[in-house]
Design a protein around this nucleic acid. Sequence first.
DNA 1: TATTGTTATACTCTATAACTATA
DNA 2: TATAGTTATAGAGTATAACAATA
Lengths: 169, 169
Amino acid sequence: MTIRDARRAAGPGAGPEFVGEFGWALTVLLREWRSRVEAVVGDLPHGSRGYQVLAAVVREEPPTQASLAQRLCIDRSVMTYLIDRYVECGLVERQQDPADRRARRIVPTERGRRTLDELDARVREVERELLGSVPEADRLVLRRLLRQAADAVSHDAKAPQPTDGMGRG
Amino acid sequence: MTIRDARRAAGPGAGPEFVGEFGWALTVLLREWRSRVEAVVGDLPHGSRGYQVLAAVVREEPPTQASLAQRLCIDRSVMTYLIDRYVECGLVERQQDPADRRARRIVPTERGRRTLDELDARVREVERELLGSVPEADRLVLRRLLRQAADAVSHDAKAPQPTDGMGRG
DNA sequence: TATTGTTATACTCTATAACTATA
DNA sequence: TATAGTTATAGAGTATAACAATA
């Protein structure tokens, strides 16, 4: 079944979609993603969040703690503890940012890179299993749309929201 | 841009997708969904989760506390407090299940139904804004695929998992 | 004056276990 | 023996505020 078929079949009224379903689906999937990732990362400190931090550190331009915290929706005070632990384990290092002496750039150690490589293989498999019910061809679509939405939200969060008069009733 | 176009444009290598991105996108979107829903539900107890409970109570066959807890990924002990509060507020009632005297069926009051109607309108708007970056035609696709994945995961969770030898390192 | 990172504290959420009443 | 619901408690996660260093 192609996406077009699916969309046509779903049509208006054909799918019992309801308000709030979006939030429910996110809740269920994220919970399961965390649970399964935590089951395969072994003794990696801070479980699935630790994996996300390590992945961000390896893949991005050496991020500051603040940018990591913002990107991963983790409070900066929590980020301090988390990085402390990862430095202890020899997975990352703190380096002074030459351009801003307040900031610390978090860079992976060689061991950190190798660890992430191993974890990536396991997480890739986890994500494959998690989307097992979605036809192969549609998975990329789902991932892309999800990412598109998340990117926009993540960027919006960096800019202060204009007041829109939506009070809390 | 249609889904087919998007898929073609994304092609292999065209999109910088990475392992774990799926979890990241879920994290960002769910956090924002909760935050925005909480901003519009006013003084509804238990915020966005309270909304999800009320929605489930109104839309499903009167659920038991246990089925609610399982469906919404909330611990049954937490569900007790949450329902207590909603009974206090006159939004739902506990009714004995005639077929199983251990179970309580949670049914909405008239006020509960009216409250949900109002909240639904606001949440619908929240979800529309949250997916503002996704073209109108693609939103339904995203919702459908997300739901498909979540449904499967949710059902799997009900059946005990067979051991698959995936130890924790 | 604002921001980065640190530290301490308080609060919320979550998980766990014990208990009862039913099945 | 297992399940639904309740209650109490401990633990993890989270938010908040104060502070020093720097911009």
